[in-house]
Amino acid sequence: MIMAAPVPREDRGASPRPAGLGAPIVTAKGLSKTFKLGGGDVVALRDVDLEIRKGEFIAFVGPSGCGKSTFLNMVAGLLPATGGVAHVNGQPVTEPSRQVGFMFQTPVLLPWRTVEKNVLMPAEVFGLKQADIRDKARAVIEAVGLGAFVDAYPRQLSGGMQQRVALARVLTYEPDVLLMDEPFGALDEFTREAMNLELMRITQAAGITVLFVTHNITEAVFMSDRVVVMTPRPGKVSGIVDIDLERPRTIGTMQKQSFSDLIFKVRGILGNTHGDH
């Protein structure tokens, strides 16, 4: 893979998210995953067809075992599909790519590196010159609100701040697609809310496509352009809900009737196929 010099973000447009208007950037066709388990087959994900457009914010909700993390790992190229295919930027996914960033539930920071050195770690792996990317890293650290902590070590930071570092780390190498597997699941409610607002603001400004896995329906509806509802046994997509709430969204958005209607709509899809409502 050829490493181009980091491209300034401006060309990707800072305009409000053109929901449903961008070109497809992530597509899945018949994407399936079967795990072998003690001689038997466990279907983790069955026949997922999905088209995600550039700049979209997509949330995946569903109970444990619905295959949402499996889907994310396959789009990331971390897990081979057993059926179907995923494309990112028109290329079939066969291995991890620099165009796709991954964020985990835990920050996964290296405790012997400062905030800045943690953020620069991917650039080292990619073989980029530190001098070329340093300004970019500083700017991103500033953007996630950690400008005063560039030289701090992870253990000096709170859980929320550590997750901000993880966010800065992935944003610095400018992926087109950001995959997030319950990134704020371990944070307290207040911190999580703040992080969600921040994440929306930053990814929207940068025009990054986000695939966001969560257990939390409220969070999913609040942040995304579409909510993909998934159900387990076997893991599959049960419905997709368009979230047509206007942007930018604020805490006030949550008080609207349309907001709670959408939550009930998502809940309904989960409940129908679940059979416990």
Partner: peptide
Amino acid sequence: PDDARKLMRSLKA
């Protein structure tokens, strides 16, 4: 930790 290995894999390290 598994996540650290996964992070490095996602970077194609």
